[in-house]
C-alpha cells in the first residue's frame, strides 16, 4: 500500500516537474510547480513527517506560489515563444542529459554509504514538538542566521523599490 502510494505520488511529482519545463504558458508552469509541491508534501506525509508536509503546503504551495501566480496575473504574461534551438541542442540534448543522469546516479551509488532502508511511517520525530525542539537547540545558529538573511533580503527589496518612487 505504502509503496503503491509512493509510486503514484512520485510519478505525479516527476510528471509535474517535466510539465513545468515543457509548458509554454507561465500560469501552466506555475500550476505544475504547485503539483510538484503538493506531491512532495504527500511524500513527506508518507514518511511520517507530518509537520514538514503541512509546512510545505502552507509556505510553498499556499504563500509563495500564490505570489507567483499573482505576479503572473498582474503582469498578464502571455505565452512564451520558443527561441530557435541551435543544431547542437537539437542533436546532443537528449544524449547529454542521459549521460548526466547516469553519471549522477553512479556517483550517488558509489560515494554515499548505504544506510538503513527507508521504511514508510518508521520516522516518528516529525511532529511539531520534535521539530521545534531541534530547531531551537541543535540548529539554533543556522535558524537565526537564516532569519537574518531573510531580513536583509526584505530590506534590500525595500531599498530597491524606493529608488523607483
Amino acid at each position: 500500500m505504502d509503496v503503491i502510494l509512493f509510486l503514484i505520488f512520485a510519478f505525479i511529482a516527476v510528471a509535474s516537474a517535466v510539465s513545468l519545463v515543457l509548458q509554454r504558458h507561465p500560469i501552466s508552469s506555475a500550476l505544475s510547480l504547485i503539483g510538484v509541491m503538493g506531491a512532495l508534501a504527500v511524500l513527506y506525509l508518507l514518511l511520517g513527517a507530518e509537520f514538514m508536509a503541512a509546512a510545505q503546503l502552507i509556505v510553498y504551495a499556499g504563500a509563495i506560489m500564490v505570489l507567483f501566480v499573482f505576479v503572473i496575473m498582474l503582469l498578464n504574461a502571455g505565452r512564451e515563444r520558443p527561441s530557435a534551438a541551435s543544431r547542437l541542442v537539437r542533436w546532443l540534448g537528449i544524449p547529454l542529459f542521459t549521460l548526466f543522469i547516469g553519471v549522477m546516479a553512479y556517483f550517488i551509488q558509489t560515494f554515499f554509504p548505504k544506510t538503513l532502508d527507508v521504511s514508510f511511517g518508521g520516522f516518528t520525530q516529525g511532529a511539531g514538538l520534535e521539530i521545534g525542539r531541534q530547531l531551537f537547540t541543535r540548529y539554533l545558529l543556522p535558524f537565526e542566521v537564516t532569519s537574518l538573511l531573510i531580513l536583509i533580503a526584505i530590506i534590500g527589496a525595500i531599498v530597491l523599490a524606493r529608488k523607483e518612487i
Binding site: I27, L31, I34, E50, F51, A53, A54, A55, L57, I58, A61, G62, A63, V66, V69, F70, M73, A127, G128
Partner: peptide, 25 residues
C-alpha cells in the same frame, strides 16, 4: 483526527485561493 489538524486546515485554506484566482484569470 490528524495530529496536525489545525495546520491541515490552514494549509487547505491557503491553497483554496487558487480556485478564485484561477477562475478570475
Amino acid at each position: 483526527d490528524l495530529k496536525i489538524g489545525v495546520l491541515f486546515v490552514l494549509a487547505i485554506s491557503s491553497i483554496g485561493v487558487y480556485g478564485v484566482a484561477l477562475g478570475g484569470w
